[in-house]
């Protein structure tokens, strides 16, 4: 079974993010990056499928040079090889552009299964995976909490609202977006980190994929990024210790009336 994992490198969750001076995006200097959390679960699912079914896990990531760190982490955990889509023309793509570039890179791979996280921690559009399925002509399902391989088909458990689930069957090849919590992701071992250094990592630019800037033209653009206006009138209490505790208890007793 050949499984492709699409993953994205995003600013680390605990980074203190600041806006750039133009107010068009965040300042990317002085922050650390990590693998998008739902994609970590997708990678783990791919590695487990490889362990049970045999085959190969290929990582595909689009991003600048720094994204190699995320790719190496996936190789260290057990992915076999990687495709790194890197080109100055890939900056500022929307979900459609990213999916278009990935579709070009992955068509030649003919994977049995493509998995990716259900959304990214930065844009959070939750679109790239589904668009990729459409562009590659694959059936798909989203927000998946379990995968069972049944020969040349799969049975997946899809999460619905308010604690409901549903099983869905489809034949392979297919694409799935994976929900966080589907598994317990592994850590890379020292041996894995050493082995990753020798695993194939292929860089692909726009020309390698046979694409032009017009093919990747965004269908939407961010014009401004800003700190949300405060809608609520939160009453803040400063400091700590007994003093704040006493003030809070007064509020809980006399305003919230829960004591």
């Amino acid at each position: 079974m050949k499984i492709v994992v699409c993953l994205k490198q995003v600013p680390a969750r605990d980074s203190l993010l600041r806006l750039n001076s133009a107010g068009t995006w965040i300042q990317e200097t002085d922050i650390s990056f990590e693998v998008n959390e739902p994609d970590i679960y997708a990678l783990e699912e791919a590695l487990r499928l490889k362990e049970s079914q045999g085959g190969e896990v290929v990582v595909c990531s689009l991003g600048p040079a720094r994204a190699q760190q995320a790719i190496k982490e996936a190789l260290a955990k057990g992915a076999d090889r990687a495709l790194h889509l890197d080109d100055p023309a890939f900056a500022n793509l929307d979900s459609f552009g990213i999916a278009r570039a990935m579709a070009k890179a992955l068509d030649a791979e003919k994977p049995d299964l493509i998995v990716t996280g259900l959304q990214s921690d930065d844009f959070g559009a939750a679109q790239t995976g589904v668009i990729l399925a459409e562009l590659m002509g694959l059936p798909h399902s989203t927000i998946i909490m379990a995968i069972e391989v049944q020969g040349s088909a799969i049975k997946v458990k899809r999460e619905l609202e308010a604690g409901f689930f549903q099983f869905i069957e489809m034949s392979l090849p297919a694409l799935l977006t994976i929900q966080s919590g589907i598994n317990k992701p592994r850590y890379a071992t020292l041996k894995g980190i050493m082995a990753a250094k020798n695993k194939p990592l292929k860089k692909l630019g726009m020309a390698d994929l046979g694409l032009s800037a017009a093919d990747l033209a965004p269908r939407q653009k961010f014009t401004r990024v800003y700190v949300p206006e405060k809608r609520s009138k939160t009453e803040f209490f400063e400091g700590g210790g007994k003093d704040v505790a006493a003030k809070l208890v007064d509020k809980l007793k006399n305003e919230a009336r829960v004591l």
Partner: peptide, 11 residues
């Protein structure tokens, strides 16, 4: 965007 840390205008 960024899990609610910022808002964005999109056209």
């Amino acid at each position: 965007v960024f899990q609610g840390k910022f808002s964005a205008d999109v056209e």
